[in-house]
Amino acid sequence: MAYDSFSVLKSSAVPLPIENVDTDQIIPARFLKATERKGFDDNLFRDWRYDKNDQPKADFVLNNPTYHGKILVGGKNFGSGSSREHAAWAIYDYGFRCVVSSFFADIFRGNAINVGILPVQVSPEFLHQIFEAIEKDPNAELEVNLPEQRISIVSTGASESFDINGYKKHNLLNGFDDIDYLQAMKDEIVSFASNR
């Protein structure tokens, strides 16, 4: 088991209403030099979060104590760019367990699930409602219910269902990962390889 299992998450959320948030913004390449999974959370959104003298930029949402929570809400096409899993590690290690957007880049979506972050894709309209709810009340809570595949805005009761395949859902609910699954079918893989 590589991460904490995920079932129902009720939390306030951090809004980042910017489109095409790429993995170079989530974690710039110069912070990819570690050989262990350590310290990436300090450099999450590094260049948006800190100025060139390493001082926090007051206008960036992570530096604004008004906004907090275990859910990050981003604009369309979240996680585009590089395959660096460090982006997902940085988000997880910072304390987010769920990222909500109206559209995710493929590799980021896969990496997120593999490290235990639930990517929730909602309609552009529902994303807008979430941003509005947070703007109105920064403590507005979202409820992400994985067993029921439903995300709700607690204050308004508005909700929407989201997709996830049954296999990945089972993994997240139980904290299993793909490596466990693949190890269990090694004989089948070896036999497949020898017939190629």
Binding site: S83, R84, I107, G110, N111, N114, D178, I179, A193
Partner: peptide, 14 residues
């Protein structure tokens, strides 16, 4: 392209 978890999958199970 793949993530590091997948690199570990390929190393350990191809």
């Amino acid at each position: 392209g793949i993530g590091t978890s997948e690199v570990e999958m390929v190393l350990s199970s191809q």
